[in-house]
């Protein structure tokens, strides 16, 4: 009897890695500039760009929710996959445990983001 071939779960993680890599390559630098430099330092954008009212309205909009979840979750899955596969290069012989930690943290982050997006209301 030929054993049934076990399906690999690699394409799922690779797709999430690729999607996060593409999203962060397209808008990552600009996002960091806006949220981490322009707004805190008062450069270029209006001072109230990230005021509670503005961000709450954005997070309550369905398109805003989708954007926030895509950025946080896909960035996390991208980084988790890349860090997991780089462990070997820095001399850590990564096995199932390391895989659980890397992808597990990305999953926990995704669940927290989804919960927070529901908690802010609609």
């Amino acid at each position: 009897m030929k054993p049934t071939l076990k399906r690999s779960n690699a394409p799922i993680f690779w797709a999430l890695f690729g999607a996060g890599g593409m999203l962060s390559a397209l808008i990552g630098p600009m996002l960091v500039f806006i949220t981490g430099l322009a707004v805190p330092l008062g450069l270029l954008l209006p001072a109230d760009t990230m005021s509670y009212a503005h961000v709450l309205a954005f997070a309550r909009n369905w398109a805003g929710k989708a954007f926030i979840l895509a950025v946080i979750a896909l960035f996390l899955w991208h980084a988790a996959h890349r860090i997991f596969h780089s462990l070997h290069d820095v001399g850590v012989h990564a096995g199932t445990g390391a895989k659980l930690v890397c992808y597990g943290l990305a999953l926990v982050g995704t669940v927290i983001a989804a919960w927070a997006l529901l908690a802010v209301g609609f």
Binding site: V71, I72, L76, G109
Partner: peptide
Amino acid sequence: YMIHEGTALFVAAYAGILLAGLVRLA
């Protein structure tokens, strides 16, 4: 190669900062 793989640490940390902000927003 190691530098471009290492950028993932910054991607993860930045996503963590945004996630913290989202939880604070809630």
